[in-house]
């Protein structure tokens, strides 16, 4: 297994009129006795949406809590906006955390819960801030009911409102889509997307890949406490040179095309089956540059070309299966 260096995610500039949005971990570890929850992690994030991926127990919650300044790293540096995060009031003001566990008292109304958060943040006008936050998550209709009567999705939204009430430039969410139905998920995705487009840095953890693929600009893959990969998952896939790529092709003459492909050095295998042509490729770039030309020269029409394992699902599986 060749050593691979993963470039950290680009650090975008600060959004207009706010503190710097950079989230930086440098050589961070966190242990509890013999249990190493997070092991030597380094990355930097700017504005946009990043997905924090990993199996349960991989260390995602620990990372989010360290970035929120609630947990101290056992080793290394956690900085938010250039400052150390641990117990830093400036960081608390610029970061909003939506934890996974139910942290809402059932007897409070939604509005009361969000206003409580506003007051805890010492906002100048908590009532107005509360109203804005509630409007952002679209809970106006239910805001004056007790949280105990909310559905799971609504409870998530009220937690997000509470995390947004002080208008932080950074939002950290731990398993935000837990228990949401498809419509609520789409709304949430649109909301987070718009916030990221406005310049916020958003980091959310999930173990449901289809959600991450939909929303995140880039991913951080954590496996047993270590950072296995970072960046755009398609780019990550390209970097996995020890795993040959496979493409599926449907054309007007599969067999002829297969023969033509076998001449290309980038291709090392073809298979004709089920009305499709499967091509095993030694070199991704070489094949993609050649495919259209080869088809044209062979006089074969291309109806479909698709990489078979270009999904986040496959990339993730590869990353956590290697030792």
């Amino acid at each position: 297994m060749t050593a691979q260096s993963f470039a950290p995610l680009p650090t975008a500039g600060a959004p207009t009129g706010g503190p710097p949005a950079a989230l930086v971990l440098e050589g961070v570890s966190r242990w509890y006795g013999n249990v190493v929850a997070v092991n030597d992690i380094t990355f930097a994030l700017g504005s946009g949406v990043t997905g924090l991926l990993g199996p349960n127990g991989a260390g995602k919650t620990t990372i989010l809590h360290m970035l929120a300044g609630l947990l101290r790293p056992s080793a290394g540096k956690v900085s938010v906006g250039g400052q150390p995060a641990w117990r830093n009031p400036a960081v608390y003001r610029s970061v909003g955390l939506v934890p996974e566990r139910e942290a809402v008292q059932a007897f409070l109304t939604g509005r009361a819960f969000v206003e409580l958060a506003a007051r805890l943040q010492s906002l100048a006008d908590p009532v107005a801030a509360t109203a804005r936050a509630i409007a952002t998550v679209d809970l106006d209709a239910a805001a004056d009911r007790a949280v105990g009567t909310y559905s799971k999705g609504m409870r998530q939204r009220v937690k997000i409102a509470a995390a947004l009430v002080h208008e932080p430039s950074i939002l950290l969410l731990d398993e935000p889509f837990n228990g949401m139905d498809p419509r609520q998920r789409l709304h949430m995705i649109a909301l987070l997307r718009s916030m990221a487009d406005a310049g916020r840095a958003i980091l959310f953890s999930s173990h449901i890949l289809e959600e991450v693929e939909r929303l995140a600009d880039g991913v951080l893959v954590i496996h047993a406490g270590r950072l296995a990969a970072a960046g755009d998952f398609r780019e990550i896939r390209r970097l996995m040179t020890d795993r040959p790529h496979t493409f599926v092709v449907r054309s007007s003459d599969d067999r002829r095309l297969a023969a033509a492909f076998m001449v290309e050095p980038a291709v090392f295998g073809t298979e004709l089956r089920d009305n499709r042509l499967t091509v095993r490729v030694a070199e991704f770039g070489g094949f993609t540059r050649a495919v259209a030309r080869v088809a044209r020269d062979a006089g074969v029409s291309l109806f479909e070309v698709a990489p078979t394992d270009d999904s986040l699902e496959s990339v993730f599986a590869y990353l956590v299966s290697r030792r």
Partner: peptide, 12 residues
């Protein structure tokens, strides 16, 4: 795609 010499990833 062939004439522009572009790397083709997907037609779907």
């Amino acid at each position: 795609v062939a004439e522009l010499g572009l790397p083709l990833v997907r037609i779907e």
